[in-house]
């Protein structure tokens, strides 16, 4: 990731100086293309925001939804009061559940999977070869292929928090990303540390892990994105409104009769807002995390 960063600034610095007027003119179509695609990409988001602010009667009345003079925050107060009892579930709890599940899966997943990858990459133990082979095999088993049998096997854990977390901690893809990354770290570094008397744990925690921040970032972001949007598993396992994560809740809320679309869209805005904030703050990590996962995959 350091390479990409290093290249970009030099280009910015040199190019405009060389051929400035010509590029300016040639940039006009470029900007037009950027803008047109930008508008197309933004339109659904703009619609969601507009519908969350517009009166209910305008949600499904074509362009009326963009009539700024009618906008207000009534849908936001509406969704807060619609979702405020134990029977319907509380608005704050849907966020708390999604947040807890996501943070736990990401955090524990980072630890557990990087440890496994380290053991596979650096330690010698019986069955290592077989374990590596099995993980490569598991890499192609998508969660969807085991969702149904899991639904049956773990039925006793319906409506619990842990069943939303534990199955997703161990992850073959994460292990593989870490494993590839660790393999790229020269072994001479471990050797030097071992000479200084460090044990495998020490080498891992103090040397390998800190050197592997890009791998941690990409695994964290990939896990975060999958987990925050997780839908299939909660559909099958969660009926208690107090343990429902956000994506499931919004589909539940949208299915209510009569549908309060303005409130649904307000809920949608609230749902993505924290992610967008996280995304804007860690934008570089996001983009590099996603990008470097590909290089390894």
């Amino acid at each position: 990731m350091t390479q990409t960063q290093a290249q970009t600034p030099t280009r910015v610095a040199t190019k405009p100086r060389k051929i400035s007027r010509r590029t300016l003119a040639s940039r006009v179509p470029h900007y037009v293309a950027l803008l047109v695609t930008g508008v197309l990409f933004l339109a659904p988001v703009a619609y969601m925001i507009a519908a969350s602010l517009a009166p209910a009667s305008d949600t499904l009345a074509g362009f009326a939804v963009f009539d700024v003079t009618q906008w207000g925050f009534h849908n936001y107060s509406g969704v807060a009061s619609s979702l405020s009892t134990d029977s319907t579930g509380h608005l704050w709890r849907f966020f708390a559940v999604s947040f807890t599940v996501t943070v736990a899966v990401v955090g524990l997943g980072l630890i557990v999977n990087s440890m496994a990858a380290y053991a596979l990459s650096r330690l010698t133990w019986r069955g290592r070869g077989q374990a590596l082979f099995v993980i490569l095999l598991l890499l192609i088993v998508p969660f969807e292929a085991v969702a149904v049998p899991m639904f049956y096997l773990y039925n006793d854990a319906r409506n619990t928090l842990w069943i939303q977390i534990v199955p997703f901690i161990g992850n073959a893809l994460s292990i593989f990303i870490f494993y590839s990354f660790f393999n790229g770290i020269p072994r001479s570094i471990d050797e030097a540390a071992r000479m200084d008397g460090a044990n495998p744990w020490g080498i891992f925690w103090r040397i390998i892990a800190p050197m592997s921040k890009p791998a941690y970032a990409s695994v964290a972001i990939l896990t975060f994105l999958t987990q925050w949007g997780s839908f299939l598993w909660p559909v099958l396992m969660i009926s208690d409104p107090n343990l429902r994560p956000l994506p499931l809740q919004i589909s539940v809320f949208a299915g209510q009769l009569p549908p309060a679309w303005g409130q649904v869209m307000a809920f949608g805005v609230l749902l993505v807002l924290p992610v967008i904030v996280v995304f804007l703050i860690f934008q570089r990590w996001f983009i590099e995390g996603v990008a470097s996962s590909a290089v390894k995959g």
Partner: peptide, 25 residues
């Protein structure tokens, strides 16, 4: 623009479906 094109990625697909369901009504 980079962020803008990436933005939908952070939308859970369940929400995306609901937004588009209204757009495509």
């Amino acid at each position: 623009f980079r962020s803008l094109y990436f933005l939908p990625v952070v939308f859970p697909i369940a929400l995306v479906a609901i937004i588009w369901r209204l757009i495509l009504a």
